Amino acid sequence: MTTDENCLFLFGGDAPWSAEAWTASDDRVRGGKSQSYLDCPAGAGKAVFRGTLDITALGGAGFASQRSVDRAQHPSWDVSAYDGLRLKVLKAGGDGKKYTLTLKDEVLPKRPDDREQSTVSWEYDFISPKGDGDEEDRELYVPWSEFKPTYRGKPKPDAPKLDLANVRRISLMMRSFFGKQEGAFRLEVAYVAAVRDTPANAARPASVVSSSSSAGYPEKGSGDGGRTEPKSWLTWMCGLFK
Rank of each mutant, 00 (worst) to 15 (best):
G223D: 01
G225V: 11
R227C: 09
G225I: 10
Y217H: 15
A202S: 15
R204E: 06
G226P: 01
G225M: 12
A202E: 13
P218A: 00
G223S: 05
T228V: 12
A203M: 10
S210H: 07
N201T: 15
P230L: 05
V208G: 12
G225D: 06
P230A: 06
D224V: 02
G226I: 05
G223L: 01
G225S: 11
E229K: 00
A200R: 14
S212Q: 11
V209F: 00
N201G: 14
P218Q: 03
E229P: 00
R227W: 12
G225H: 12
E219W: 09
S214A: 13
P218Y: 04
G221P: 04
G223V: 03
P205Q: 01
E219C: 06
P230Y: 00
S222F: 05
A215E: 12
S222M: 11
A215M: 09
K220F: 10
S214K: 08
E219V: 14
Y217E: 14
V208A: 05
S212V: 12
N201E: 08
S214D: 14
S210L: 04
K231I: 00
G223C: 03
V209T: 09
A200Y: 08
S222P: 01
S212L: 13
T228R: 11
A202I: 11
G225R: 06
S211K: 03
G216L: 08
S210Y: 05
S214T: 13
R204Y: 04
T228L: 03
S213N: 15
K231E: 07
S212W: 10
G225E: 08
V208N: 10
E219A: 14
D224F: 02
A215Y: 07
G223R: 02
K220H: 11
S222R: 10
S222H: 08
N201W: 13
K231G: 08
E229A: 06
A215S: 12
R227G: 04
A203W: 04
P205S: 02
A206C: 00
A206W: 04
S222C: 07
A206R: 07
S211W: 04
K231R: 03
P230H: 05
V209W: 00
S222L: 09
K231T: 02
S207P: 07
P205Y: 00
G225T: 06
V209Q: 04
A202V: 08
K220V: 15
A203T: 12
E219H: 08
S212N: 07
V208I: 15
A200P: 01
S214Q: 11
N201C: 15
G216M: 04
A203L: 13
S213F: 06
P205F: 04
G226R: 08
G226H: 10
S212H: 07
K231S: 11
S222G: 07
P230G: 03
G226T: 09
P218N: 04
T228D: 10
P218E: 01
G216S: 11
P205D: 01
R227M: 15
K231A: 14
S212E: 14
A215P: 00
V208L: 13
V208H: 08
K220P: 10
A200F: 04
S210A: 12
Y217F: 15
S213W: 08
R227N: 13
S210T: 05
G216P: 03
S214M: 12
D224H: 10
V209P: 01
Y217L: 15
T228I: 11
P205A: 02
A203Y: 05
D224P: 02
